[in-house]
């Protein structure tokens, strides 16, 4: 098991200037916010299940920039079909990173399907994504970093993380218009 927040901090240290980061609602958004506010972050706080589709659309609009989606197992499980859609489109600039804590941590830690027999990496492979991996150990952090930045997408990584949620850290604004306008302006400015 890995600690999700130090892992994301490590991945985003020396963050490339044009990396676009999208987070799924709940813990992933608090994680991305905890790493530090950034104009090229877009954080979901609702619309559960939509983060993957949003990241795909963004990647198809900004093909020269790398798009990193950070989301949870619960958020992804709501829309597993998006993995098939992503595999069929094959965006080379899209990286999916799932913080798999095997639970709905925000709502009391009820187990998700991945606490049982469900294996998200196998789901991604079955959908047709070729660059996939599952990581379980802190020692693999550098390998995870390399996979985020060094492989042609679509890349899918399932990271087994501790279930205990870290403190809540809110994004720059809960207002959707404020958030998307700042993000879009930054994306389109260079």
């Amino acid at each position: 098991m890995l600690e999700r927040r130090p892992l994301l901090k490590s991945i985003l240290s020396d963050r490339p200037k044009d990396l676009l980061a999208v987070s799924g609602l709940g813990s992933s958004t608090w994680d991305l916010s905890a790493v530090g506010d950034h104009h090229k972050n877009f954080c979901f706080i609702g619309a559960m299940g939509q983060a993957g589709a949003f990241a795909l659309g963004l990647a198809m609009a900004q093909k020269e920039k790398r798009v990193l989606l950070v989301t949870g197992d619960g958020e992804l499980l709501m829309s597993l079909g998006i993995l098939a859609t992503i595999a069929n489109q094959g965006p080379e600039n899209l990286v999916l990173l799932v913080m798999d804590n095997e639970s709905y941590a925000e709502t009391g830690g009820q187990p998700t399907a991945t606490a049982g027999p469900t294996d998200l990496e196998q789901v991604a492979r079955g959908c047709g994504i070729k660059e996939t991996a599952t990581f379980q150990n802190e020692e693999e952090t550098e390998e995870i970093r390399k996979m985020v930045y060094g492989r042609a997408g679509p890349v899918f990584m399932n990271i087994k993380v501790f279930a205990k949620p870290p403190d809540l850290v809110f994004p720059h604004s809960f207002d959707g218009v404020t958030a998307i306008d700042r993000f879009r302006k930054s994306v389109l400015s260079n």
Binding site: V22, L56, R184
Partner: peptide, 10 residues
């Protein structure tokens, strides 16, 4: 979600 992300990307 797809169209929303695309619009954010112009």
């Amino acid at each position: 979600g797809l169209l929303s992300g695309a619009w954010a990307g112009g």
